[in-house]
Simulated assay, not measured.
Amino acid sequence: MRALVRRVLSATVSVNSQTVGEINRGLLVYLAVHRDDEDSDLGWISQKILGMRVFEDDAKKMNNSLVEKGYELMVISQFTLFGSLRKGFRPSFNHAATPEFAVGQYRKFLQIIKEKLNGRVASGEFGADMKILSIDDGPVSLWLDSKEKNY
């Protein structure tokens, strides 16, 4: 499982010109499921995202997590995080999970997050053509990969 996590002041996602999710200050997470992911990948990546200390304390140091601050979270499915340009210029997505498997893992991820976060949890629509508007804060962007935990 891979996630691109961005600290934002706000974010909105729409499908067919209709807003389907929005958050104020918090994290915008682009999430991709690998074809070999297991529930342990879900647990690891959700724990990292909820525990990430990327929000400033009174001393202006990044010491607070999303949970500690009570901020919000938006999750967007994005299989293209597993895109590879190793063999040319057209990306290959052969490491991404099938849509049937990925949607189940995506829903499990959302359920885990909603159970552990008191703030609002918004999401896009799996498999849809989405338009995402966000205002980055910092900017702060971090990359997580449940198979290569050395980030």
Rank of each mutant, 00 (worst) to 15 (best):
V15Q: 11
V15H: 07
V15P: 12
V15R: 13
N16H: 15
S17P: 03
S17D: 15
S17K: 14
Q18A: 14
T19L: 05
V20D: 10
V20H: 04
V20M: 10
V20T: 13
G21S: 10
G21Q: 12
G21N: 09
G21W: 11
E22R: 14
E22G: 11
I23G: 10
R25E: 14
L27S: 05
L28I: 07
V29L: 04
V29P: 04
Y30F: 15
L31C: 02
L31M: 07
L31S: 05
A32R: 00
A32E: 01
A32N: 00
V33H: 00
V33Q: 02
H34T: 01
H34S: 09
H34M: 05
H34P: 03
R35A: 09
R35D: 08
D36W: 09
D36P: 04
D36T: 12
D37Q: 05
D37L: 06
D37K: 01
D37Y: 08
E38N: 09
E38G: 14
E38M: 09
E38V: 12
D39H: 07
D39L: 06
S40Y: 08
D41K: 01
L42K: 01
L42Y: 01
L42N: 12
L42V: 13
L42D: 04
L42A: 07
G43W: 05
W44L: 05
W44Y: 13
W44A: 08
I45T: 05
I45H: 02
I45K: 01
S46T: 15
Q47D: 14
Q47I: 00
Q47F: 00
K48I: 03
K48Q: 14
K48P: 09
I49W: 00
L50E: 10
L50I: 10
L50A: 07
L50H: 08
M52Q: 12
M52N: 07
